[in-house]
Design a binder for these strands. Structure first.
Length: 267
DNA sequence: TACAATGTTTTAAG
DNA sequence: CCTTAAAACATTGT
């Protein structure tokens, strides 16, 4: 479920725990989300540490604690962060719970595609430092985008938009929304996007990221009816722009929705 | 029952 | 080493 804006929304859920000590940590150590992570060390170090700060980048989150402890969280497909009353007893899919005096900070992930990373050190962990260029930063220019498209010129445009190294935070619905708003066919080769269209694509990427953060990131409200988002999963869904029947197919390994009239196949 | 779900990671081939 | 494609991962819901 979570993409750029949903991740930002979930990150903020734990804000009420900032500047508060963690009294104890409940976790399901054998679960897949902890693969490659020292759960004993995590548990021992976070216990007694104070939550100082959190950030999100793309779909990745970083929580900084005292004791030079850093916790990385990825929500996968079904992960969620929420807050419960202090002393909360974790349920079946609540695989990580930080117990504080005033709240329990809960990470739930039924499908276990998420991930928990842990690091101790003065500096940010390596897996956080090597982030991709933020889509709303000054560095993400139309020219930068054109180079990315050329680098992956043979791949379907939709598949390129899903690459987290290139477009951090863009997931299945955002990629479809970006393509629909730019009127580009998901299956077209990335290298076939003209410089003029690349500029338009760049503008729509930044617009959709900013709007999603403003709307969903704020309180998890839905984007407007004028977006494809509202229609893509409806039975017999129609394009909110031209009323054509929406099409569905697997592109770039994911179910993709587009309007055959607004986003025609390019020759 | 079988399949799909707002996502990576691994494996393999070119 | 780079790019691309497809299967695998675990669980729930239709």
């Amino acid at each position: 479920m979570p993409e750029l804006a949903e991740v930002e929304f979930f990150r903020k859920q734990w804000d009420c725990g900032l500047k508060q000590r963690v009294l104890s940590v409940d976790l399901h150590a054998s679960k897949r989300i902890f693969r490659g992570t020292e759960t004993k060390q995590l548990q021992q170090t976070i216990t007694g540490a104070t939550l100082l700060e959190s950030k999100a980048h793309g779909k990745q989150m970083l929580f900084r604690f005292s004791k030079d402890a850093w916790l990385g969280l990825h929500l996968g497909m079904t992960g969620k962060l929420r807050v419960e009353k202090p002393g909360f007893t974790p349920e079946k899919h609540d695989h990580l719970v930080l117990q504080q005096k005033k709240h329990s900070l809960v990470f739930r992930d039924p499908r276990l595609f998420g991930r928990v990373l842990f690091h101790i050190g003065k500096d940010e962990p390596a897996w956080w430092s090597k982030r991709a260029t933020d889509l709303l930063s000054k560095e993400f220019t139309a020219e930068f985008l054109e180079k990315l498209l050329q680098r992956h010129r043979k791949a379907p445009l939709k598949a390129v938009l899903l690459m987290q190294h290139r477009f951090p935070g863009v997931g299945n619905w955002m990629a479809d929304e970006i393509l629909w708003q730019t009127k580009l066919n998901p299956k077209m080769a990335a290298g076939d996007v003209s410089p003029t269209l690349a500029k338009k694509l760049h503008k729509q990427i930044q617009f959709i990221c900013a709007e999603a953060l403003r709307i969903i990131g704020h309180d998890f409200s839905d984007p407007p009816e004028s977006w494809l988002f509202q229609h893509r999963w409806r039975k017999g869904g129609h394009c909110p722009r031209c009323e054509s029947s929406l099409k569905h197919a697997t592109v770039g390994g994911r179910t993709t929705c587009w309007c055959p009239k607004c986003q025609p196949v390019v020759e």
